[in-house]
Design a protein around this nucleic acid. Structure first.
Lengths: 337, 337
DNA sequence: CTGAAAGCGCTAACAC
DNA sequence: GTGTTAGCGCTTTCAG
């Protein structure tokens, strides 16, 4: 196999301790000895075995990350943030995809623990408290990211969803849209983040003496937006809605596709706003006006929190809130004049 | 810390070897001893330390994967394929993103070797032979995936690009398109896969007594397609082109965006075909007609090859070719009548 | 400054 | 069947 510390020691005619010392800069070594060791390392192309090192130091320099599906662009962005920050501190990432299976998530937690990861970040889309309970008992630093559900008492990083939705309402009002429709996702609303979003939306509409109209559909994917197009269109027509605000970019895009396929133009005939700012939002035509959830930053901040905890600092807040941003693009028409 | 094999042995009143035997099913153990060990494991919540295990068995059960950017949807699909197959054989993935830096790729190879990964898969978009040379010297199983460049003598998995482009020409001809424009990427063509694609395109057009028109642009991203829109449009008009075939979906989408922004409709005014079938291709409107590069399968097959090699089998072929498929959607108009 | 030695948690001969 | 023991490659006391 490849050279070990012993080989280096022998070649350099020093003890393995000395070799270890020069590798780690852990203790003073005479210039002469260091020179010989360095030369031996170079000659042998020696690279320390991280596995052996981990065994003794108990530091794997590995962070486990369990994602729902890396194929989701927002998930990929989060992972980028995690990795980039991890990289700065010499942490590597081991990636597991659960595809929405709670059982898989549970299994991966265990598997990652066996691999001695020093922290775990979960990017999930399911509703469960089991995961949080389960991982807590291993007392490893972890952060739980879920763009849909609101799992209480779990360290997480998010945005202020209530502020975000009210911001959109204000913007829409300013452009002359007073008959709005909010398309939410028909789940037990107390468990999902929709709770805050609907709240923010409702309050904002009410504060302008408006009439908050909400429509619930059965899902949050592109297909769901498309398949519920008829239902949504119906609500639009019955209520003279001029702008529809979708709780996810995916729904917005599915809806626009439906409208497009049915000869209705966005934003000419109807304005549409999304939520998330997934990567397709800016590529799609019309470019989608939406609320930016800063996925990369969410990942980066999550990783920073893990790192802090690894270093023994107890992070103060359980949930970190990042600033929200409204991205104004092309899917909303100004009808104020 | 958490329980070790010693703790289990003590609690079960057997030796650590016996515990090891029941964990690994490596040798017969009396029912009674097994029962006690199992109980002790359960009581202690014992989970073997994979790091320690790896050190002695020399099996990390880790596959390193270096990607250009996981944010690219096709890359994510490849990774999905890799992970899914790996999972079947208890292999985990450690992910590194190079963002197009050769230096980073080189550094990651070394880093992964130190982590004792049993194989490496690289999903790159740069042109280099250094990587291949470098990794070869570690003699670890590896596969090199590059959708742009044609790195000779490196194990890889791809599709038959020449067949693919000629297939598109045939299809276009059948729908009445005889004045085609192929948009390629303006790089030293001998190094890129465009070599095969242009060849397939040219041969097919020539065989139908056509006049192969090719336009080279400076890049292969969405922006490049957009920014070269004017140039491409110019070529279209000068040559009465009815269908343009882009060497990447990204270019096709950028181009369609440009045309859309300039009031030209696809496919009504001009037909467009892409290459790749990235995930946005089917979401975008009009849905993009394109050549499917089976990314998931490419990842899966790459992983299978690695696994084979780990098991001592010497895979026969250096480059595996997967079947190509033409995905007929909406961006091409039938003008044959 | 340097080497000898213990030991991280586990597997795999090797005896019994 | 089962226990003892020798490492895997490395870090880290502890003497000197």
């Amino acid at each position: 196999m490849s050279a070990t510390i012993k080989d280096v020691a022998k070649l350099a005619e020093v003890s393995i301790s000395t070799v270890s010392r020069v590798i780690n800069d852990s203790k003073p070594v005479s210039p002469e000895a260091r020179r010989r060791v360095l030369k031996a390392i170079d000659d042998l192309g020696y690279k320390p075995n991280e596995i052996a090192r981990s065994l003794v130091t108990k530091k794997s320099n590995l962070i486990g990350i369990i994602v729902d599906d890396i194929g989701n662009s927002y998930v990929a962005q989060i992972v980028r943030g995690i990795e980039e920050i991890g990289r700065m501190y010499k942490y590597d990432i081991v990636l597991c995809s659960s595809y929405g299976s709670e059982e898989a998530e549970l299994r991966f937690i265990q598997l990652l623990m066996q691999k001695q990861v020093e922290g775990i970040i979960i990017v999930s889309e399911i509703e469960t408290t089991k995961i949080a309970d389960n991982i807590s008992k291993y007392k490893v630093p972890f952060v739980y990211l879920n763009r849909l559900y609101n799992i209480s008492k779990t360290p997480t990083v998010t945005i202020d969803n209530e502020v975000a939705t009210s911001m959109v309402v204000d913007y829409l009002n300013k452009l002359g849209h007073n008959n709005l429709l909010y398309v939410t996702w028909n789940k037990n609303i107390d468990l999902t983040i929709e709770k805050y979003k609907v709240q923010g939306y409702t309050d904002a509409v009410l504060s302008k003496d408006g009439f908050p109209l909400v429509s619930g559909i059965d899902g949050y994917k592109i297909d769901d937006g498309y398949n519920n197009g008829e239902k949504i269109l119906d609500a639009i027509q019955k209520n003279n809605v001029t702008a529809v605000f979708c709780c996810q970019d995916e729904i917005a895009i599915g809806l626009i596709n439906y409208l497009y396929d049915n000869g209705i133009k966005v934003p000419e005939d109807i304005s549409v706003v999304g939520y998330g700012d997934i990567s397709i939002a800016s590529i799609y035509r019309p470019k989608l006006t939406t609320v930016k959830e800063p996925y990369y930053d969410i990942g980066a901040v999550a990783m920073r929190r893990i790192l802090k905890e690894i270093n023994g600092e107890i992070p103060d807040e359980r949930t970190l809130k990042l600033p929200v941003q409204l991205i104004k693009r092309e899917s909303v028409k100004d009808i104020s004049k």
